[in-house]
Design a binder for these strands. Sequence first.
DNA 1: CCTAGATATCGGCGAACGTCGATACGTTGT
DNA 2: ACAACGTATCGACGTTCGCCGATATCTAGG
Lengths: 119, 119
Amino acid sequence: MVPMPKKPLPVVDECCSVLVEPIDEDTATELAKGFHALADPARLRLLSLIAAQPAGEVCACDLVEPLGKSQPTVSHHLKVLYEAGLVDRDKRGSWIWYRVVPDRLDALRAALAPALPVG
Amino acid sequence: MVPMPKKPLPVVDECCSVLVEPIDEDTATELAKGFHALADPARLRLLSLIAAQPAGEVCACDLVEPLGKSQPTVSHHLKVLYEAGLVDRDKRGSWIWYRVVPDRLDALRAALAPALPVG
DNA sequence: CCTAGATATCGGCGAACGTCGATACGTTGT
DNA sequence: ACAACGTATCGACGTTCGCCGATATCTAGG
């Protein structure tokens, strides 16, 4: 069994946007963790590379070269994305395949939704 | 004249989502700056407090107490939000009024939009 | 002018971050 | 058992961050 880093997927409990009403500290902390995972160019590009795969998933070994960072660095960033619940992983033999978790991204996107959905 | 910190509103040039196709380094860096501004509980709460005002704007002096941080700290976070283009400001006498800039938030939200809009 | 209030800047502190080389772990195939 | 490969962890480094007290700057009113 792979020793899980921490617990993935806390998932924002709030249903609505930050812009609708003042959020409490706990919600703010939770959302901040999510945005923090997106607040790095390398992680955004990793997320983009994973999402761009036709099969919807990609081996970690195929992410090192296109990202242009060392293997430990890529591993580190993938861990951050995973612990933030933005990507899921699947071990097959020696390889680990990553794919995007749409729900978590949707939750962060919803947090930025305007107060009035549409005129 | 107030000495402007830097230049506000770089605004993401990309029209589409990170999830659609692999983004280049410049786009990633630009988006990362935006998400970085959101990657802090204090700033998220500030943004939420500003957006929650019925008048759509609020004096900075009315943000110190509800945030529960020192005045220099609040000033610092407001500066970060301003330089990220997430809020705009308006000086009236001794007071400075802040309001949310929806466009910038929309751009960040769009960057998280799924590849296929709807079924 | 002087005072009082609002805001920004400065300087410093401890903590967290991004990065990499070296290394350990786990799997595959010989 | 061994070698080769993919991956994770460790240790260290310089940088950035969040925070605050002290201080400077600006404005309004006596």
